[in-house]
Simulated scan of single mutants.
Amino acid sequence: MEIKALRTFIAVAETGSFTRAGQRLSVSQSAVSQQIRILEKDVGTPLFTRRARNVTPTQAGNVLLPYARQITAKADEAAAVISDFEGMGRGRVAIGAGGAICHHVLPSILSEFSARFSKIEIQVLSGFTMETLDRTLDGTVDVGLLVLPITTGGLTATELGRDELVAIAPRGHRWESLERVRARDFTAEQVVVYNRSSRTFRTLERFLLEDGVFPKFGMEISDLEAVKKMVEVGLGVSVVAAWAARREVDDGAIISRPLAPRGLYRTWGLVRRSGETATASHRAFINICKSRFASLLSSER
């Protein structure tokens, strides 16, 4: 069965007339009749009962009609996907994210994206949260990957997954004997912090202050890799995302422990300008983020 014949069949069934079906499809009545004859030959039975003023589907025609609609709808969907795919050959995706996401998460996502859509130009701009929000809002980047929630107007967020913050310390530290690190365990510790303007710092500060703990924030470093190195050589302890410390923990360079009593978690999301229609290349990137981001954040890898 040909798609063209099925479309003609649907038009005749819905209009009750070969003439009106031809008008809908912008073809002649004879062309409609020809397509119906082709389809009836394919199925081996009449599909319409012809009357003086109209035509109605036969029993076989009524059986075929819902299938014809499904088949043509799928054909339209496939054509749209192919059209988008071809359009992506000229696309570009500009992504804004923090340095840690660029270092630990984006490489896997962009590797898959590039393998599937090799002609798409990829641009990545790293920066702190406010920089990424501003860049997304002014159109410098198409999407931003951030910790939620956001309060900036004009942006829409899509939740991607949660991660867990863990306490890290050098090997041989007293925390090695603990199953979980409590807020009061930070008392008298030198805490190396990652950027006081970050969501991670504010989350840690709230966790400690709610328990009446006023820690010593000895170092503030805007490079997560440097934070971990300071901890590794014994210059303090810190709190980082479990996924960001996974390699050093696996290598035995540092130890990590979840935070008491129930862990400390953040929600990550993808932000875009509100009301802006996503291009095919943007949708492809967003879909890969939705399918991969949460697993890359998981501490159970």
Results as ranks from 00 to 15, higher is better:
4 K>F: 11
273 R>E: 09
57 P>M: 01
227 V>F: 08
277 T>D: 14
156 T>P: 07
274 S>M: 10
289 C>P: 00
148 L>I: 09
72 T>Y: 06
202 R>C: 08
188 A>F: 09
262 R>T: 09
207 F>H: 13
192 V>E: 02
290 K>G: 08
218 G>M: 13
127 G>D: 05
233 V>C: 05
148 L>Q: 11
113 F>M: 03
249 V>F: 01
205 E>N: 14
162 R>L: 10
213 V>F: 03
133 L>D: 02
63 V>L: 15
164 E>L: 12
298 S>D: 03
189 E>S: 02
213 V>D: 03
74 K>D: 14
74 K>T: 10
45 T>N: 15
256 S>F: 04
246 R>Y: 08
246 R>E: 09
79 A>K: 11
217 F>K: 03
127 G>N: 09
21 A>F: 04
27 V>T: 08
115 A>C: 02
65 L>A: 07
247 R>M: 11
247 R>E: 11
113 F>L: 03
7 R>L: 11
233 V>L: 05
127 G>P: 08
12 V>G: 01
228 K>A: 06
57 P>V: 03
220 E>I: 03
198 S>T: 00
98 G>Y: 05
218 G>H: 12
78 A>Q: 15
104 H>C: 11
277 T>V: 14
276 E>P: 07
215 P>F: 02
161 G>S: 11
28 S>Q: 10
46 P>M: 07
161 G>H: 10
15 T>D: 02
250 D>L: 14
84 D>T: 02
184 R>W: 07
25 L>I: 10
61 G>A: 07
267 T>V: 13
247 R>Q: 10
9 F>V: 08
289 C>T: 00
225 E>A: 11
295 S>P: 06
216 K>P: 06
19 T>Y: 15
80 A>S: 11
147 V>Y: 01
195 N>V: 04
171 R>T: 10
113 F>A: 01
299 S>M: 13
209 L>R: 12
243 W>K: 12
5 A>M: 05
21 A>Y: 03
26 S>F: 12
67 Y>F: 13
49 T>F: 14
184 R>T: 05
171 R>V: 06
233 V>D: 04
68 A>S: 00
134 D>F: 06
117 F>N: 09
251 D>V: 13
34 Q>K: 13
127 G>S: 07
188 A>H: 09
124 V>Q: 07
82 I>R: 14
137 L>C: 01
54 N>R: 07
101 I>F: 07
154 G>I: 01
22 G>E: 03
44 G>D: 07
130 M>S: 14
123 Q>C: 12
147 V>S: 02
123 Q>L: 13
171 R>H: 08
26 S>R: 15
234 G>V: 06
81 V>W: 13
171 R>M: 14
191 V>S: 06
240 V>Q: 01
142 D>K: 09
112 E>G: 03
115 A>F: 01
119 K>A: 13
99 G>K: 07
20 R>N: 15
217 F>Q: 03
227 V>Y: 02
66 P>E: 05
